[in-house]
Nucleic acid binder design. Sequence first.
DNA 1: TATTTTGAACTGACTGGTCAGTACAAAAGA
DNA 2: TCTTTTGTACTGACCAGTCAGTTCAAAATA
Lengths: 202, 202
Amino acid sequence: MDSSSTRRQATRQKLYEAAVTLIAEQGFSATTVDEIAERAGVAKGTVYYNFKSKTELFEELLRHGVGLLTASLQAAADETAERGGTKVEALDAMIRAGLDFIHRYPAFTQLYVAELWRTNRAWQSTLLVVRREAVAVVETVLRDAVAEGELSEEIDIPLTAAALVGMVLVAALDWQAFQSERSLDDVHAALSRLLHGRVSGR
Amino acid sequence: MDSSSTRRQATRQKLYEAAVTLIAEQGFSATTVDEIAERAGVAKGTVYYNFKSKTELFEELLRHGVGLLTASLQAAADETAERGGTKVEALDAMIRAGLDFIHRYPAFTQLYVAELWRTNRAWQSTLLVVRREAVAVVETVLRDAVAEGELSEEIDIPLTAAALVGMVLVAALDWQAFQSERSLDDVHAALSRLLHGRVSGR
DNA sequence: TATTTTGAACTGACTGGTCAGTACAAAAGA
DNA sequence: TCTTTTGTACTGACCAGTCAGTTCAAAATA
C-alpha cells in the first residue's frame, strides 16, 4: 500500500492536472472522461481503476486544491507571526500568498469560483466543508487583529472576511484574464492599498 | 411588429426566467433544453422557434441581464450627481445598487460569475463586451473621483475597479449562500467600511 | 354580420450522435 | 506473484436540434 501506491499516486496526479485545466476551460459537464484520459496520456480504463466515477475524480480534485490553498495561507500567517509582524501585516502576507496561489494554479481557481455558489450539485457538501476551512484562516487573523486593537472592533468579521477573499479572488482572475500585462506587484499594491484604507484622502 | 410581438416577448421572458435559474443551479451543459421548456411551460419546439440554438438563448440572456445591471449602476451614479453628492458617495450608492441587483437576481449573478473567466467557450466574446460595459461605469466614477481630488492619484484605476466589483460580487454571493440571515444593510455597511478605509485604526 | 383565409406561434414525436461507464484479455511494472 | 495499466469494443441512456402538423386571432371577403 506504499511502495506500490507511488505509481498510482503519479497517475492520479497526471489525471488531476489534465482534469483541472479541461474543467476550468469547459466546465464539468462539457468535459468528457475520454478527453481527460487523453490529455493525461492514460487509458480510459485507468481513470476508472483510480476513481469510482467522473464526479469522484472531481471531488478529490477540489479537496486536493483547496488543501494546497489553505496550507499556503496558513503558512503566510505563521511566518508573519514568527517574524513578530502585526496581524495586519499577516493579512497583507495572506493577500500575497493568495495571489501567488492563483498565479500558480489559475485553472483551479477558475473552477473553484465557477462551482462555489452553485446549489443542487453532487459535490455541494464537499465544497461547503472546503470553503469553511479556507475562510476560517482569514477570519482567525481578523479576530486576532481586533483583539489586539489593530482593527476596529466594529468590523463584521464574517462579512469582511468574505469581502477580502472576494477582492483577492476576483482581482486576480481579472488580472489573469483581462489585464495580464500587469505584474504581480502591481496587483498586490492595489489590493494592499484598499486593505490599508489608503484609497480615499490624498 | 408590435401587437404581434407582444406574445413572443412574453414567451421569451418566460424562457429567460426558466433558463436563468436552471443554468445557475446546474451549469449550462448540464441543463437540457427539455428542462428549460418544461419549466417555462412551453413546448421544446417553441424554444427553437424563438432562439436559433441553446447557446444563442444563453447569450441573449447574458446581454439582457448585464444590461439591467449596468443601467442600475449608472442610475445610482447619476442620482448621486444630481443630488450634488461627492464621487465617493456615488461609489457607495453603486455598491448599494450592486447589492440590490444581486439580491433581486441572485441566479443571474451566480451564472455570470461562473462563466466570466472561462476561456474557450462559444459566448466568450459576448461576455467580454458585456463585462467591459459594466466595469467601465465603475472606472469612470473612479477617474472622476481622482480628478476632483477625492481619491489618491496613486490608485490603479482598472485594478481597483476590478477589486471593488469583486468585493461586492463575492460578498453578496457569500451572503446569499452562507449567511442569508444578515440584512442588506449589514452587508452594505461592511463593504462601505472597507471602501472608506475605516477598517484599520480604531 | 357571417365566413373564409392567412400566417405567426406553437407542439411533440423522432433522429442521429455523444458519452459515462463496463468488460476483459493481454502487457507491463515492481 | 500481485498490482497497475493498456486498448479496444460495447451498451444503454440521454439530448440538441428537426420537422410535419396544429392552433388561433385577426384580416380579408362576401
